[in-house]
């Protein structure tokens, strides 16, 4: 399993275990983590699963994927260099321990 920690805008930390192959958005929804909406189900049609990758993990999660920049342009909250669509971060064993921060607004 891959451990993922979600840090809400108010600082609340939620730690969950996810099967490799899932993604950061789906894992949040499956575990009742508030702060991620994931309206389009990972089809890259919205920006409601916006997250900020913790700086210790930005190398491991890699660069934004094709089209992600364009979707993030429509994110409800501030877009920063470490902004990602969490549906596009696929969980691998190498991401065990991943920490992502959630914005205040998704819609």
């Amino acid at each position: 399993m891959v451990k993922v920690t979600y840090v809400a805008a108010d600082g609340t930390r939620t730690e969950v275990d996810a099967p490799p192959g899932s993604n950061v958005m789906q894992t949040a929804l499956d575990n009742d983590v508030d702060g991620i909406v994931g309206e389009c189900g990972g089809a890259m049609m919205c920006a409601t699963c916006h997250c900020y990758v913790d700086e210790d993990w930005s190398d491991a999660t890699g660069a934004r994927r094709d089209g992600e920049d364009d979707m993030l342009d429509c994110a409800a909250d501030e877009v920063r260099p470490n902004s990602r669509l969490s549906c596009q971060i696929r969980l691998t064993e190498g991401l065990d321990g991943l920490v992502v921060h959630l914005p205040e607004e998704q819609v």
Partner: peptide, 26 residues
């Protein structure tokens, strides 16, 4: 559950779990 993937990813993968919008605990 989500319907859009029924004619896309689900037809390929058969993974019904991935369609669920929120778990029972929600």
């Amino acid at each position: 559950y989500q319907r859009p993937p029924l004619s896309k990813a689900y037809l390929k993968s058969g993974d019904a779990g991935a369609l669920q919008l929120r778990p029972a605990s929600f």
